[in-house]
Design a protein around this nucleic acid. Sequence first.
DNA 1: TGTATTTTTACAGTGTCTGCACAAAAAATG
DNA 2: CATTTTTTGTGCAGACACTGTAAAAATACA
Lengths: 205, 205
Amino acid sequence: MSTMSHTTEESVGLRERKKRATRLSLQAAAVELIREHGPDSVTVEDICAQAEVSPRTFFNYFTCKEEVLAPWSREALERIPEAIAQRPAEERPPTAAHRVFDVLLDHTMRSEIWREQIMLLREHPVLAYRTMSNTRALELCLAEGLGRRTGLGEEDTYVKLVAATAMAALRVTIQSWQESPDDTDPRTLLENNFARIESGLRSPD
Amino acid sequence: MSTMSHTTEESVGLRERKKRATRLSLQAAAVELIREHGPDSVTVEDICAQAEVSPRTFFNYFTCKEEVLAPWSREALERIPEAIAQRPAEERPPTAAHRVFDVLLDHTMRSEIWREQIMLLREHPVLAYRTMSNTRALELCLAEGLGRRTGLGEEDTYVKLVAATAMAALRVTIQSWQESPDDTDPRTLLENNFARIESGLRSPD
DNA sequence: TGTATTTTTACAGTGTCTGCACAAAAAATG
DNA sequence: CATTTTTTGTGCAGACACTGTAAAAATACA
């Protein structure tokens, strides 16, 4: 907040900065309150009181209550298609998806609030169902990139299958990562899961 | 309705029959009204008026409005784990899942209302997010069966990965089936997708 | 400083969903 | 058949999620 010399874009105005602050403040308030009191007894009004904005403002930022916990930011999603398309030409589609997930994890993992969001979604599955549009958006970005990459287009069945399977791998990876010791590198787990998929899901011996 | 000599269980009481009728009636009313007027302008009250039950009764059958469109019945789900476990011992886990999905599709496809539910969920993605717990339940049943089958348990990462990947295949299959000519057999599409997965998602040439 | 644009807020209203008490229906019992 | 017990349906009151609208506040810009 106080230091500003290392922001990604120096030319970001006050309005944009305040909007980001408000969004982050609502996310932080939601995480804190839900962690403490559970998802059912926390209302939008409570979250807004903690974040010091009006309840109506909440719905200017999020389409529903649970979206405040959506784990993938809009900025991260927007970079996915191009990142997939730009992977080296010799990589097969699942590998390209794998590498982009590596970067995505490496980037989002740094965010303190991301860990807490992910943890809450795991502890309270009912919250996860409402953030599914965010997960689905990631899958669509993936399909878009793979469609461009292969020249098959994002409507191709093979493309959609790879995207859906990659999401399955990511989901299972994050889940086992949460059940692992604190120093586990999720990229190792992701590596294992993609290796299993690329070997046709043969039984582990 | 009128013939009753070929019901699965002759000993089903009046209470159970009425419950099934009420559930079906609510599902049919919801499908009809939403198809006609769109999901946003149909209220639970409308659905109940059409089905001739009180609004309060609706929520005795479904936990939320959209659950009335959940495509997998409780009965079908309950049979999954045992069906997986009973597949021939030489089948590898993905194949076992594939075969059980074949049976599941063959069975549920006969239901007229199932096609309509699936179509509505595809046309209005916002409805799909609320029925996700039903989809998730299918994945958990799958994992339970695979866990018993392999002796690894349903918490094993390989088991969870196979279950999640199989769900990806099923989802993509149903989607392409809906975009195919009317006489397309979904089991052929499912066959293709599982073949791709078992070959490690190699690019189609 | 004044004006245009964007964001926040208050307010009123609709619809989802829940708990509860009670009525109605079905099943079990003698 | 009359009875008790259990299950299911309903009416009601209320909390909360979410939306449209219009005014107020903050920001951008000249």
